[in-house]
Nucleic acid binder design. Structure first.
Lengths: 122, 122
DNA sequence: TCTCGATATGTCCAAACGGACATATCGAGG
DNA sequence: CCTCGATATGTCCGTTTGGACATATCGAGA
């Protein structure tokens, strides 16, 4: 029903702090892209999404946490753009850590399920 | 953007075997409800969803795996209903195992993030 | 043969989602 | 003061999603 994920890693992990604040693979990738590129638009574009969508995700993250994970400033030519706050960097790195721990914890079972499924076609 | 999860456990784990076959907390709960109640309708109702939605999820699961996780039979009065196949039971138990392993692997980080967020309100 | 309880399936509609496009705004530098 | 590049925000619209409701079908037992 809901459309699946682009096969990034193994599982798809979403961490829900409360009803308003959560982070999943898409949001994490976006944060990482912003950290790398210094721009919401560039980060979104790299993920194939519109500026507006990327911007709305940033809004949702900042609003959900009650404090900004991303700060922005207008103006081009090296002055404007977006950056992660300390909070944003910490959230991102913790998410990546959880993602890595999760993949390590489930890889055997995932392999077993994949094998199980492919054996069905025999 | 996408609506969060009813706070069941800690993280929200979705396992994607391929583009068509995946299982997350909702589908797992539904499978478990079917195993317990012997009925798609009853299982769905217990989760607050319509029969049609529950049924369509079962279809998606069966089609995605290429083999039924749930078999059904018509007729009421103890004869009709739905059951998990061996495959369905195995997929469910493996998912639960992965879920438990994941929660154990991330609990410290989740607690840290929750503390971080609540400290913001000071 | 009638009823009961369950699966199976269709139609209709409202809300949500997100893409496409258009502006507005701002900051710095030429 | 004009342009550039980026954020900020609005409108419009097609698609998807899922709820509500209506049937149809089936199996067993009274």
């Amino acid at each position: 029903m809901k459309k699946p994920v682009p096969p990034s890693g193994l599982g798809h992990l979403r961490i829900t702090l409360d009803a308003e604040a959560y982070i999943g693979p898409g949001r994490a990738d976006l944060l990482e892209g912003i950290e790398r590129s210094g721009s919401i638009g560039a980060a979104g574009k790299a993920m194939g999404m519109s500026y507006k969508r990327a911007w709305s995700l940033v809004q949702a993250l900042n609003a959900g946490f009650g404090a900004p994970l991303v700060v922005t400033s207008r103006g081009g030519s090296g002055q404007g753009g977006a950056q992660l706050t300390d909070l944003g960097r910490e959230v991102l790195s913790r998410y990546r850590a959880m993602q890595a721990a999760t993949e390590a914890a489930i890889e055997d079972d995932v392999a077993a399920l994949r094998r199980l499924k492919s054996d069905l076609s025999n």
